[in-house]
């Protein structure tokens, strides 16, 4: 019988959902991931820019599912599908990554230590929203994700009851059922490049969110508006920072 929790020899699988990421950070992300995970599972949400071809260039992408019709706007279905595909590879641990997220260097070294133990089943990291470029991150009332921990790394427990909240937007990337399992809040950091673009790119992103969620039901309307702030508070990123 396979033990529910293994303290050594754990296999780490990254899972991502992507859509038209070929010209952005996907290549960087896949290259970085290839350095420290064992496999990568990708669900392509009907990209039209050759994203699947880019994925195929990476040997560690062991599973690539291409949707012909986008599930954008029905996010819980997309998340559930990605989960289903990922766990079908019989992983020990899953790392839920977005196509614009990169783990800081020391995280890559320490990740094995975080999964080769039998005391906790999830790990939270602090995610920093880079803004305007690759040197600073944003920190203010609406942009402070890095003060909390976001769970992106989870142990796969076969047979456990997994479920996602049935929401259209901002569905958590890992099942809710992890909430009641023991976890660990790591001090390690994730760099999020989703907001790095030009003012014009930010405006387009803002308009997309508002169109999808005009009343701020799934997210926060004030936060949507703050995307357009011409003078956001920026803090310099330090590679060996706390």
């Amino acid at each position: 019988m396979r033990p529910v929790r293994k303290a050594s020899g754990n296999r780490l699988t990254a899972m991502m959902q992507v859509r038209n990421e070929a010209d952005r950070y996907l290549e960087t992300v896949l290259r970085e991931l290839s350095e420290f995970v064992d496999d990568i599972v990708v669900v392509d949400d009907a990209s039209s820019d050759g994203t699947p071809d880019l994925c195929r260039r990476f040997k560690k992408v062991s599973n690539l599912v291409i949707l012909s019709e986008s599930l954008f706007g029905r996010e819980w279905m997309l998340r559930s599908l990605l989960w289903k595909v990922a766990v079908s590879t019989d992983p020990d641990w899953l790392l839920a990554v977005d196509a614009d997220e990169v783990y800081e260097d020391r995280a890559k070294e320490r990740l094995r230590g975080l999964i080769d133990q039998d005391r906790y089943d999830w790990v939270g990291f602090r995610m920093f929203d880079f803004w305007g470029g690759m040197t600073h991150y944003r920190e203010d009332e609406h942009w402070n994700l890095h003060r909390r921990h976001m769970v992106t790394l989870v142990r796969f427990l076969p047979g456990y009851h997994y479920f996602f909240p049935k929401m259209d937007l901002h569905v958590p990337r890992i099942p809710l059922s992890y909430r009641v399992l023991p976890g660990y809040r790591s001090e390690l950091r994730i760099k999020h490049f989703g907001w790095v673009g030009s003012p014009e790119q930010l405006r387009r992103k803002y308009e997309r969110y508002v169109a999808l969620d005009p009343e701020g039901r799934f997210g926060n309307a004030d936060q949507y508006r703050s995307i357009l702030d011409p003078n956001p508070r920026l803090v310099e990123w330090k590679e060996d920072g706390p």
Partner: peptide, 16 residues
């Protein structure tokens, strides 16, 4: 399992 989902959603940490 239905009751468990409800308990998790309600934020009861001991429902495991």
């Amino acid at each position: 399992l239905t009751a468990f989902e409800r308990a998790v959603e309600a934020g009861r940490p001991n429902s495991l």
